[in-house]
Design a protein around this nucleic acid. Structure first.
Lengths: 153, 153
DNA sequence: TGTATTTACGCCGCCCGTAAGTATT
DNA sequence: AATACTTACGGGCGGCGTAAATACA
């Protein structure tokens, strides 16, 4: 049982629609379908009833959802409290980009869904990006001084 | 952030000893050390203070542990309730084995730590194992009818 | 025939183990 | 010198995507 499975399950339990959930979760529809089956096997219990081409949360699913909400909620709260007491969130992200400008509105909208507390400071077509102060950038050129770091959400 | 990381963290937070926790969690000591660092990076906060060759849970760690306990507890409760209402747990596992008999005591002890509600029915050196009724077996011979299935805990 | 889920199959990244390195007592 | 944690590196497994199959309206 993994956290990603629980997040996927929680979302799918609410929509009762794998295709829709997959799109909103940014994974492929078969991947989500399989993850749910895997979770059901792990628990030894079916969480959804398959009725024709639709799925419907059943009793077991509803019971489990209740606990999943508690668990995921606690972890989200924990993260928030850590942010609060560590005071490391500036609240503002400085973003520089010279490509993909037409994608930014959707990207920002998506991000604000997940992190409503963050505000952005945007820099488009910065003159000399190597000297610019940004938290991250989107560019087609090779960029200079600081190293890159991989993050997941 | 993954569930395994949280379980590892919870255990290590209590022992404040990576080597000991690694042994009890059945993973290598470097693996556990790395997982904790990974979790800290994910949260953006150090959870332990490194003092010489010892580690000590710090403020952030204590705060986060509180939420981890809630989350993992909820998931354990959810599993239990699903077992209750589905009524699929027989309460007794039938185990057949013709090798590794000297390992069984420790294995059983280990398992009972995790699942105290389960009782065992042991069959050593079964005459014709292919016909035997067991939930699982440990053997050096190839066994017959039913397929094998992979499970993680 | 279009829509929704499931199965098949392969790739890539991550978890974990072994080995070596570093630091403290 | 012994103990405990960290870094380096490689292998194996699982998550996820694309493609194809199945099933219902």
């Amino acid at each position: 049982m993994e956290l990603s499975q629980l997040k996927y399950f929680r979302h799918t339990a609410r929509t009762e629609n794998i295709t829709k959930s997959a799109a909103e979760l940014h994974i492929s529809q078969p991947a989500l379908s399989k993850m749910i089956v895997t979770l059901e096997k792990d628990l030894g219990v079916k969480l959804f009833d398959r009725e024709g081409k639709h799925i419907k949360l059943n009793n077991h699913g509803a019971v489990f959802l209740k606990y999943v909400d508690i668990a995921l909620g606690a972890l989200e709260d924990g993260r928030k409290e850590l942010e609060d007491i560590s005071g490391q969130t500036s609240g503002t992200l400085h973003v520089s980009f010279d490509v993909a400008s037409q994608l930014m509105p959707d990207l920002l909208k998506e991000f604000r869904d997940r992190h409503p507390e963050v505000t952005f400071h945007l820099l488009q077509h910065d003159r000399n990006p190597t000297q610019a102060k940004f938290d991250f950038c989107i560019t087609s050129s090779l960029v200079g001084p600081s190293g890159t770091e991989k993050k997941s959400c």
